[in-house]
Amino acid sequence: MNKLLVILAAFSLSAGVASAQTAPTKVKYKSKTDQAAKAQKTPEQKADHKAKQLAQKLNLTAEQTEKVRQLHLSRYQQLQANRVKYATAGKSAARKQEMKTDKAAYEAQLKQILSAEQYTKYAQLRAEKVEKHKAQRKAKS
Rank of each mutant, 00 (worst) to 15 (best):
K132H: 09
T42E: 01
L60I: 01
K50H: 05
Q56M: 08
K138Y: 15
Q97Y: 13
A36S: 15
M99N: 11
A87M: 05
D34C: 15
A89T: 04
I7A: 04
G90S: 01
S141C: 08
S74R: 06
E66Y: 02
L60F: 00
H49I: 08
K91A: 13
T65Q: 07
T88D: 00
S31D: 07
E128C: 05
A104P: 14
K140C: 11
K121Y: 08
A127K: 09
A39P: 02
L5W: 08
V27D: 08
A87N: 06
P43W: 06
Q78P: 05
H133C: 05
T88S: 09
E98T: 00
A55Y: 02
Q97G: 09
A20M: 10
Q56F: 00
S141L: 13
A94R: 15
E131K: 13
L13G: 06
L73A: 11
T120R: 09
Q78M: 09
K91M: 13
A9W: 03
N82V: 04
A55V: 03
F11Q: 02
G16F: 05
Q21S: 05
V17R: 00
E44H: 10
N59P: 08
Q80H: 11
T61M: 02
A37Q: 05
N2D: 13
S12R: 03
A51E: 07
V130M: 12
T42Y: 10
A18F: 10
K111H: 12
L114C: 06
N82C: 00
F11Y: 03
V130T: 11
K50L: 09
A127F: 02
Q124F: 12
K103Q: 12
A23S: 06
Y106K: 00
S115P: 01
P43T: 04
R126Y: 08
K91V: 07
S141P: 11
S74L: 01
K28D: 12
K67E: 05
Y106F: 14
G90K: 04
Q56C: 10
Q21M: 06
S115N: 04
N82Y: 13
N59K: 04
A23G: 03
Q64Y: 01
V68I: 03
T101F: 13
N59I: 02
R69P: 08
A108I: 13
Q112T: 00
E98G: 01
K28L: 13
T88K: 11
E107N: 07
K111P: 03
R69D: 02
K91Y: 14
Y119L: 10
A135T: 09
K134L: 08
K3Q: 02
A94V: 14
A139C: 10
